[in-house]
Amino acid sequence: MADYKKPIPIPTPETQDFWDGAKREELRLQKCDACSAVIFPPRPFCPSCSTREVSSFTASGQARLYSYVINERPAPGFDAPYAIAIVELDEGPRMMTNIVNCEQTPEALVLDMPLEVIFEPITEEISLPKFQPAGD
């Protein structure tokens, strides 16, 4: 982890629960207590109905591949080519991620393929949620 060269997130009070969850290998989302909207990225209110009454919960970690590009250009810490992906969680929200344990090719990366979350520890405090092809 010491020579990790990629950007490292810095949690804020509003996102601390998400990153604490990731460290425990839990994917944390929020749900509005009033209108049941599922919220990501984290914020302590609901952008659908503006109430501040929201609760955190642990998501299933199941998702599907929604869209991506395979970057061919250099980026600090990354070995091109690599896919920058958007996944749609079973609970609804979408998030950017990388797809791991999978070839970074159009043939291997098929839209709507089922995925599951795994957590990659990058510092003492931060584990990044990434996704891999779902097991049987």
């Binding site: 990629k6 950007p7 490292i8 997130p9 810095i10 949690p11 804020t12 996102t15 990153w19 990225p41 869209s67 991506y68 590009v69 970057n71 250009r73 250099p74 980026a75 810490g77 990354f78 690599y82 920058i84 992906a85 958007i86 998030m95 950017m96 991620t97 990388n98 990058i122 990044l128």
Partner: peptide, 18 residues
């Protein structure tokens, strides 16, 4: 910075196109 940059988007060519 927390929810996109860690995954390696390297400017508009690999972001606007997603």
């Amino acid at each position: 910075g927390q929810f996109e940059a860690p995954y390696g988007p390297a400017g508009p060519p690999s972001m606007f196109t997603i």
